[in-house]
Structures are given as structure tokens and as C-alpha cells.
């Protein structure tokens, strides 16, 4: 007899939503940096004519606190290095998510337990008797209460 067909896995469902959530969040880090980095219109809230559609919101304190450190790193290693590193990290995280999903989808393990028999059904609802899985469950009721 042929084994039952193995259906391809669909999880995590819905996949586009999970991938989209990650992509939108990580990609927004890159676009936010473009606005917050020194020299961009967004980094100067009082700039009269912002060149991007993003309103000239002030740089958040957490990012502002990092700017001197980033500037020192770029002074040593070259301009634009932080942006490159940010892009690499976004790609690394996307790859990691994709690899995790693929590892799950390609994993060899499947549930192989034999299901107990149905003793009642109505429409597509069934009542499965787990008494079939262990002799202790089939002992007379009163014998286990004595």
C-alpha cells in the first residue's frame, strides 16, 4: 500500500503577512536612518524646506545619543560605513527568518501517531475512543475505584 501523501507545509500562515511585517519593520530602519543621519533635512527640525516627505521630526534621544559614536566610527573607517553595516544587518535578519521558515518546511518530522477509532459521528464530527490506547483505560470502572 502506498503511504499517505505528504502535504507541503503552509506555515507560518499567512506567510506574506509574517514576511511583510519583518521586511517593513527592518526596511523602515534604513529609511529612518536616511532621515536622521547628520546632514539630512529631517535631522534639522528647523530646516525651512524639507527635501523628503517625512516631517522634520526631531531625532529621537536614543538615536541622538548614538550619533557622536557613529561619527567617530565613520571618521576612522570612512563615510557611509554605518549605513552599509545597517543594510548588512537587515539582510542578515531577513535571511535568518527565511532560513528558519525553510528549515521548518523541509524538516523530515511528521506526526505519526495512530489515531484511535471513532465510536460515534455526526456530520464531520467524530468521537474518538482513547480507551483503545491503553489497557488500564479499558478496565471495569469499579475495579479502579475499589
Amino acid at each position: 500500500m502506498l503511504p499517505p501523501p505528504v502535504l507541503p507545509r503552509l506555515g507560518p500562515r499567512p506567510l506574506p503577512l509574517h514576511l511583510g511585517t519583518a521586511l517593513m519593520t527592518w526596511a523602515s530602519s534604513e529609511s529612518a536612518w536616511k532621515n536622521w543621519k547628520p546632514g539630512s533635512p529631517g535631522s534639522r527640525p528647523n530646516s525651512p524646506v524639507p527635501e523628503t516627505p517625512v516631517p522634520g521630526a526631531p531625532v529621537p534621544d536614543a538615536i541622538a545619543a548614538l550619533l557622536p559614536e557613529i561619527a567617530a566610527l565613520e571618521a576612522r573607517d570612512g563615510a557611509g560605513r554605518f549605513e552599509e553595516a545597517l543594510r548588512r544587518e537587515i539582510a542578515r535578519r531577513m535571511h535568518r527568518l527565511a532560513e528558519g521558515v525553510l528549515a521548518y518546511r523541509q524538516h523530515a518530522v511528521r506526526r505519526t501517531l495512530e489515531n484511535p477509532p471513532a465510536v460515534w459521528s455526526e456530520g464531520n464530527t467524530r468521537l474518538l475512543d482513547y480507551g483503545a490506547t491503553h489497557p488500564a483505560a479499558r478496565a471495569p470502572y469499579w475495579s479502579c475505584r475499589r
Binding site: 484511535p116 471513532a118 465510536v119 456530520g123 464531520n124 464530527t125 467524530r126 468521537l127 474518538l128 475512543d129 482513547y130 480507551g131 490506547t133 491503553h134 488500564a136 483505560a137 479499558r138 478496565a139 470502572y141 479502579c144
Partner: peptide
């Protein structure tokens, strides 16, 4: 299976996938 091994007699409702009536 743990319930069955402990001497209880469990039955399980498998709802299945709703048919046209369900």
C-alpha cells in the same frame, strides 16, 4: 494517552472541517 494510562476512559471530540451543513 496519559489519562488513559492512569485508568480513565477519555473520549475526544474531533470537530473535523465544517461541511456545507456545519
Amino acid at each position: 494517552r496519559a489519562m488513559a494510562a492512569a485508568g480513565l476512559r477519555p473520549y475526544l471530540v474531533d470537530w473535523g472541517t465544517p461541511n456545507d451543513e456545519e
